[in-house]
Amino acid sequence: MTTRPTNRLSLVADIGGTNTRVALAEGVRLLPDSIRRYSNAKYPGLETVLRTYIAEEGGVDCAGACVAVAGPVRDGVGIMTNLDWAMDKATLARATGAETVAILNDLQAQGHALGHLDDSVLRPIVTGPDAGPSAAKLVIGVGTGFNAAPVFETAAGRLVTPAECGHANLPIRTEAELRLCKFVETAHGFPAVEDVLSGRGLERVYAFLGAEANDPTEVAAADIMTALTNGTDPRATQAAQLFVRILGTVAGNLSLNFLPFGGVFLVGGVTRAFAPHLQTFGFAEAFRDKGRFAGFMQNFPVTVIEDDYAALTGCATHLVALSA
Rank of each mutant, 00 (worst) to 15 (best):
K182H: 14
F183H: 13
F183T: 00
V184E: 01
V184Y: 06
E185M: 12
E185L: 09
E185N: 14
T186L: 02
A187H: 12
A187R: 12
H188K: 10
H188L: 13
G189V: 00
P191C: 07
P191G: 12
A192W: 08
A192V: 05
A192E: 09
V193I: 10
V196F: 04
L197H: 05
L197K: 04
S198P: 03
S198V: 09
G199W: 10
G199C: 05
R200I: 09
G201A: 03
G201H: 01
G201Q: 01
E203G: 10
R204D: 00
V205D: 08
V205E: 04
Y206L: 01
Y206I: 00
A207S: 04
A207F: 04
F208N: 04
F208Q: 09
G210R: 06
G210T: 00
E212G: 00
N214D: 13
D215C: 08
D215M: 03
P216M: 13
V219R: 15
A222R: 05
D223C: 05
I224H: 03
I224K: 14
I224E: 02
M225F: 13
M225T: 02
M225A: 08
T226K: 12
A227T: 01
L228A: 10
L228G: 04
T229P: 01
N230C: 07
N230K: 11
G231A: 02
T232R: 11
T232L: 03
T232Q: 03
D233M: 07
R235G: 02
A236Y: 09
T237Q: 10
T237N: 09
T237R: 14
Q238N: 08
A240H: 13
Q241A: 06
L242K: 14
